[in-house]
């Protein structure tokens, strides 16, 4: 079909760089079969736009740059999406905090029912998505003329790089009238990002304090070059920051290796990590449900085992 409408992918970025989940969502976007344009909305986001132009398969990058799009607040970005929507057959974003906030706003304004957290593109209008914390997979056909999707990026491989797509600058900035940015508390970390990491070490309630979490979990992560995750219980208790939470209502990850330390394996936690390639669990309760999904289980006290494990890894890497 010559007149097939292109797909618009909303890039996840921090102005300076493109978040790796964008390349994964691109794979899902390309599976729809239409040309893919990538929208980079931000302030001084030229660098992120150039990174988007390098992704293989991108037909065009649209850059909406200006103070109105600083911090990608939901109202201005959604207004931009609504303005662009008529030219597109599908609007797609990774299921990040920004994507989750912006896309339903657009969907409602163009009267479309969104499909959240797509894990497979079965056909251009048919998608698989998890429900009930991933304990069931629903296959849905979207009947609206435009599709609005958020993508569970852990389920898609990243598109490659080497492209040089053209970049078009948009002039559509409309500042948000009723919500204003006050501040942000974003911890800088040298560790890989949770949703992009090849290895993740997560700690649970068993750690008992923020100090112990820091002393036990983080050095093992560093020995492995891993990102750090946590259970809800560990986050609620203040052992770990909120953005480390893995699970149904936190981040969904699928690294090559996931190491669960003192995590029982509640359904809500499993929902966020059970698609990892290899799962290791260390828990003193041999009946802990985490062992039902673990490839390798070690029953015992994590406070003894983790330092040993760290030493063994150092030996193996030497």
């Amino acid at each position: 079909m010559a007149d097939i409408l292109p797909t618009l992918l909303f890039a996840e970025h921090d102005d300076a760089s493109l978040n790796p989940v964008t390349a994964r969502a691109l794979t899902a976007a390309l599976a729809l079969g239409a040309p893919v344009h990538v929208l980079v909305a931000g302030e001084n986001a030229q660098a992120a736009a150039q990174a988007a132009a390098r992704l293989d398969g991108v037909a065009e990058v649209l850059l909406a740059d200006g103070p109105a799009f600083a911090h990608r607040l939901a109202e201005p970005v959604a207004a931009l999406g609504v303005a662009l929507a008529p030219a597109y057959g599908a609007l797609i974003a990774p299921s990040t905090a920004v994507g989750k906030s912006v896309m339903p706003r657009i969907a409602a304004l163009i009267d479309v029912m969104q499909v959240s957290d797509v894990i497979a593109v079965v056909a251009p209008d048919t998608f698989d998505r998890p429900i009930y914390a991933g304990n069931a997979i629903q296959r849905v056909r979207a009947t609206d003329a435009t599709r609005v999707l958020t993508i569970r990026t852990a389920a898609f491989a990243a598109a490659g790089e080497g492209n040089a797509a053209p970049l078009r600058t948009l002039d559509l900035a409309e500042p948000s009238a009723h919500s204003h940015f006050v501040g942000e508390d974003i911890a800088a970390s040298a560790r890989p990002e949770l949703t992009a990491a090849r290895i993740i070490v997560s700690g649970g309630r068993a750690l008992g304090s923020a100090e112990k979490f820091h002393e036990i979990v983080e050095p093992l992560a560093d020995a492995l070059g891993a990102a750090v995750g946590a259970s809800r219980a560990a986050v609620d208790a203040g052992y770990a920051p909120n953005d480390w939470q893995v699970g149904q209502t936190g981040k969904v990850v699928a690294p090559d290796l996931y190491v669960a330390l003192g995590i029982s394996g509640a359904i809500q936690h499993l929902a966020g990590m059970k698609d990892s390639k290899v799962i290791v669990a260390i828990n003193k309760d041999e009946d802990a449900p985490i062992f039902q999904v673990a490839d390798y289980g070690l029953v015992g006290d994590l406070f003894e085992i983790v330092p040993e494990l760290k030493a063994e890894i150092a030996k193996a890497k030497a």
Partner: peptide, 29 residues
């Protein structure tokens, strides 16, 4: 607006093995 075509069980995961020590674990990994 969404037509539900089917609802299925996710592909399950089976429990693996228990190892006895950190050294054995690293060997497997």
């Amino acid at each position: 607006r969404l037509e539900i075509l089917s609802t299925t069980e996710p592909s399950g995961r089976t429990a693996g093995i228990k190892v006895a020590s950190a050294a054995e674990l690293v060997g497997h990994l």
